[in-house]
Structures are given as structure tokens and as C-alpha cells.
Design a protein around this nucleic acid. Structure first.
Lengths: 201, 201
DNA sequence: GCAAAAATGGACCCGCAAGTCCAAAAACCG
DNA sequence: CGGTTTTTGGACTTGCGGGTCCATTTTTGC
């Protein structure tokens, strides 16, 4: 039942996913035709349906997984090592830098709403991404609490939920307004606040 | 140049926009066909193209304007009267209530990304909405500062930017996870923080 | 090397939904 | 009223793009 993929086949499949992801980041899900993917990856329609028998939906799902993973990978190794204030600031800088460079081309934009409606599983992928992301932040807060750098009475789960929401909204506003200000404000004010709590405690 | 609309024509146009907006909220932009709008509003294809000569794009733009206005209207009269802590909490409650009721059916979801790509002007509409929204929040903060309920050293612009981002992200996470927790966390923690600043000042 | 399986190329089909067109009905206005 | 303009209905066209199919080439495993 499970497909037998040659090494070459595996490579082609990966090339299709990566190419489609790039194309979608660039021009948006519903602007990208299978023909575009074919041209951009040097493949034929036969190949597309060979590797993704269920057609576009299945390809989109694979792209969604690919992009979701990438979002977290791009934040490493900072995200998994929020163990000091300099580390937090480095993470902050990485986020700003990444999204500034990316500008309007956001994978999330594609994943949410657009892919979400079409592929039923895409919703789950986004949820999983958010969950992992928030968990990493919460872990960072707890680490800092264990060293006394963040007040013990901070609710790590609530704080990480709020911070994650702020980041998402910041990115969203970057997409619609083109300005990074919101994301910056969220990160700086939140970190500031976490630090302030410890000082006074 | 500007078209002459009869009273009846005006009514029909409005009915089309409202119906299309409802339909889109329910099922998403790219799931809604002109045929659906026709069925839902009791109109014919001739009428659609009579009132929106540029076709779907133009209709979508009108819908975007309609929805953007609605988002702010739904927050009134609270949003324009953030002059006391009970008022802030009432606003908070309204937001939670509204988005909880709305669930996955979010106009923003349609406006951003989907409509944004198709209709060039939609981006401007979203930007305008965000701008007005943030301005209202900032105004509320300044009001509270004038009465000493919020510390004077709070940067109203930065704080409102962060809060707006948090709200947007909270809604986004509501859409993808189905949980209101993030939005709640943002609102409660932010308001808490604004109050705390005044106490110690 | 050779059969079986996988990979590739691309011509073709087909349905859908946007957009066109025009003729009939209704509303407006002097 | 009666001419003019606006409104309405709906049949028809059209192009696009996803999906099918199969013939050909390449790879695999023994």
C-alpha cells in the first residue's frame, strides 16, 4: 500500500514541494496553477499526479507541512534556548529580521484561510504549528523562572499564549500595512514586561 | 460620469453587497460563486454586472468596504468611550462575545490574503481599518492617562500597536485552533498591565 | 541482461464559473 | 401620457485549469 519511492523519485517529489512552496509564497495559493509549478520545477503533469494522486489538494497539504516546519526551523537555535535575556533578544532580532526580509511573502497567509478551506488537514497543520510554537515560548518562560529572571507568579501558559497571539498579529499587520512596527512593539513591550516583573519581585 | 441610481437600484445594489458579504462570511471568498450570490439575493446575472461592471473584483471590493466598516461598528459604543476601567472591560467583553459567536466565520479572513490578492484596493481597505482601530485604542489610552488611570510614561502609540496586534493574532488563533484563549489572554494581560503601571506610578 | 516496477512527457478531455449580450419590463420625468 | 433611461432576466459563449490516460523511458532487483 505505502508507495515505493526510488531515490530519484524522492528527489523529484521534494523538488516539487519546495518549488510549489516558493511559488506560493511569491504569488499566493490561488494564483499558482499546476502549470506554474511544472514550469518552475521542470516537471510534467504526469509527475505531479504520480506523486500526488489526489491532485492539487494533496500537493497543497504537503506544501503546508513543509512550510509549517520551516517556520519553526527558521527560529532555531534561538527558540529552543530562551535561557537568558540576551538569548531572548537574539530571538527577537531573528524574528524581526526574518519577517522583514520576507515582507509580504508569508507562508502563513497561504496556509490559513486559503489552504485551510480546501484541504481539511491543513487546519490541523496550522494548529500543530501554533501549539509547538507556544509550547517553546512557554518553556522559555519557565526556564527563566527557574533562574529567577522572570517572576514566579507569571502564568507561563497565559503569557506565552498572549505573546504568540501578538506575534501572529504583528505579522498579519506587517502583511497588510507593510510596517514592522506592530511586531516590534509586541516583542519589545512583552519582553520588557517580563523583565520588569522580576525586578520588582 | 457617475452613474444615476434609482431608489430601487440603490436598494438592489445594497442587497447584493449585504448578501454577498453574508455568503462570504459563511463559506469563504473562493467558495462563493456569482451564482450563489444570485440565488441568495434573488438577483440575476444581468443585475450583478449592471451594478458592478467590473465583475467579481468590483463586488468583492464593495463587500470588503462593507465588512471593514462593520468590524468597527460592532465595537461601538465601547470603542469610542474607553474612559474608565469598567468601559475597557465592557469593550473587552464585547470583543470576546462577538468573536466567540462568530467563530470561524471571519470577514478579516476573507479580506486578507484572498481578497487582497485579487482586488488591489482591498489592501488599502484593510490598512485603513487597522489604522482607525489602532487610533481609537490609542485615544482610549490617552484619555485614561489624562485622568491618571494609566501612567503618563506609557507610549500610547506603541501600546495600542501592540494591543491591536494581539487582538488580530488572537482572532487568527481563534480561527485556526477554535479556542478563544489567546484573545482572552491578550486582552486581560494587556489591560492588567496598563492598570498595574498606574498603581505603582 | 532482463522482466517488473517506477518515472516521465504530454496530448486530450471536460466541467465550471466568469463574463457577454440583448430583449423585455419597470421606473422616471417633462 | 410617451419617450427615455434604468432595471431585470436569462440564454449563450469562452477560456482556463484541474484531472485523465497512455505511450515511452529509466531504474530496480535478481
Amino acid at each position: 500500500m505505502t508507495r515505493a519511492l526510488t531515490r530519484k523519485g524522492e528527489a523529484t517529489r521534494a523538488r516539487i514541494v519546495a518549488g510549489a512552496a516558493a511559488e506560493i509564497r511569491e504569488r499566493g495559493v490561488d494564483e499558482v496553477r499546476l502549470e506554474d509549478v511544472m514550469a518552475h520545477t521542470g516537471t510534467s503533469k504526469g509527475q505531479l499526479f504520480h506523486y500526488f494522486p489526489n491532485g492539487k489538494d494533496e500537493l497543497l497539504l504537503a506544501v503546508a507541512e513543509h512550510e509549517a516546519d520551516q517556520v519553526l526551523i527558521d527560529q532555531e537555535p534561538m527558540l529552543s534556548n530562551l535561557t537568558s535575556w540576551p538569548a531572548w533578544l537574539a530571538w527577537r532580532d531573528r524574528l524581526i529580521e526574518r519577517y522583514l526580509a520576507q515582507g509580504v511573502k508569508c507562508p502563513l497567509n497561504g496556509l490559513l484561510g486559503q489552504t485551510g478551506r480546501r484541504a481539511p488537514g491543513a487546519q490541523a497543520i496550522v494548529t500543530g504549528l501554533m501549539w509547538r510554537w507556544q509550547k517553546a515560548i512557554a518553556e522559555g518562560i519557565r526556564q527563566m523562572q527557574s533562574t529567577g529572571d522572570i517572576a514566579a507568579d507569571v502564568d507561563a501558559d497565559r503569557a506565552s499564549a498572549a505573546l504568540l497571539a501578538g506575534i501572529q498579529g504583528g505579522v498579519l499587520l506587517l502583511l497588510s500595512t507593510g510596517k514592522i512596527d506592530h511586531l516590534e512593539a509586541v516583542l519589545d513591550l512583552t519582553i520588557e514586561r517580563l523583565r520588569a516583573g522580576a525586578r520588582s519581585a
